[in-house]
């Protein structure tokens, strides 16, 4: 049980192409199972979606009221640009969010982690496939909802310059990787303590402010804004959103994407280190 699985194995034990193909098979199988399981809980999926939608709508309403009280615009945003920001944020958030920190609590408590640890594939792959399955299923409802909200709030989108459009996709992928790695790593705290809910709450609070959900980052008051600039959270949500609705200079966009890639790499590295420690701990304590 020393090795968690394929992710943890050194290169060369399996030819790279073969490894990629078998991993692809794992994903296909996990994805299919997840879709089947989640279809059983359609109502629950819809109810979860309510939270995804309502959060941005609440802050959009707040900032629209602020804009109205300040003669129409706040920090260069008016009702319609706020609408564009928060509708985009809703979609980006949907792409990147995970529920893994809550799932881990249950896994450790119920002991359902043991079979996962014994499988010859790193358990994160199953989680990623599960996450993607949920998103693929909910997109069918989320997109019409977003369209309806667009009719209600009349967002002012600008035409996306080709470069930004080109950068948007990799930045979404990197945001997903970064957030997934960070939250999966934090979720491993469940191996050390049964009461991870405080940590989860703290993380969610920080994420709310520093990823651009409470307000577009430029609107944050100074100490918070400086904090948001130096920490990775903005790359989980705010950066892709700003690529889609902001007007970043091309240089800033490329620079941002590079920083995002570095953070994502660092997060994956941290995940690998903490995972090894967690498995050692699991073996020592006996689950």
């Amino acid at each position: 049980m020393k090795e968690g699985g394929r992710l943890a194995q050194g290169p060369g034990t399996v030819p790279l192409a073969g490894a990629a193909r078998s991993l692809w098979d794992v994903y296909r199988a996990e994805f299919r199972t997840s879709v089947a399981v989640q279809m059983q809980y359609r109502a629950a999926q819809l109810i979860w979606l309510l939270g995804t939608v309502l959060g941005p709508v609440v802050y959009l309403a707040v900032w629209s009221a602020v804009a109205a009280a300040s003669g129409g615009t706040v920090g260069g945003y008016d009702r319609h640009t706020f609408a564009a920001y928060y509708l985009t944020l809703m979609l980006v958030n949907q792409v990147t969010f995970t529920w893994i920190m809550y799932e881990f609590q249950g896994r450790i408590r119920e002991g359902s982690f043991t079979p996962l640890i014994l499988r010859p594939v790193h358990p994160i792959h199953g989680d990623v496939a599960d996450n993607l399955a949920h998103k693929a299923l909910t997109l069918a409802v989320l997109l019409p909802t977003a369209a309806a909200l667009a009719v209600a709030f009349r967002p002012a989108f600008r035409g996306l310059p080709p470069l930004d459009a080109l950068l948007l996709l990799p930045s979404l992928v990197l945001a997903f990787v970064l957030r997934f790695a960070v939250e999966w790593t934090l979720a491993l705290a469940a191996f050390w303590t049964v009461r991870t809910s405080a940590l989860n709450g703290l993380y969610e609070g920080v994420l709310l402010f520093l990823s651009g959900q409470v307000a577009p980052l430029p609107l944050l008051p100074q100490p918070l804004r400086a904090l948001a600039d130096v920490l990775p959270f903005r790359f989980m949500v705010a950066f892709p959103v700003s690529l889609a609705v902001g007007r970043p200079l091309p240089a800033a966009a490329v620079l941002g994407l590079s920083a995002q890639a570095l953070w994502a790499a660092a997060a994956v590295a941290a995940l690998l280190v903490v995972w090894r420690a967690a498995v050692r701990r699991y073996a020592a304590v006996g689950g």
Binding site: A65, A69, S70, E204, F209, A215, L219, L224
Partner: peptide, 20 residues
């Protein structure tokens, strides 16, 4: 944390306006 989040949200909002 919950209280801090709520009050922090207020702080951010009232950095830009006098009344909501």
């Amino acid at each position: 944390v919950g209280l801090g989040t709520a009050l922090g949200g207020l702080a951010v909002v009232f950095a830009h306006t006098a009344t909501l």
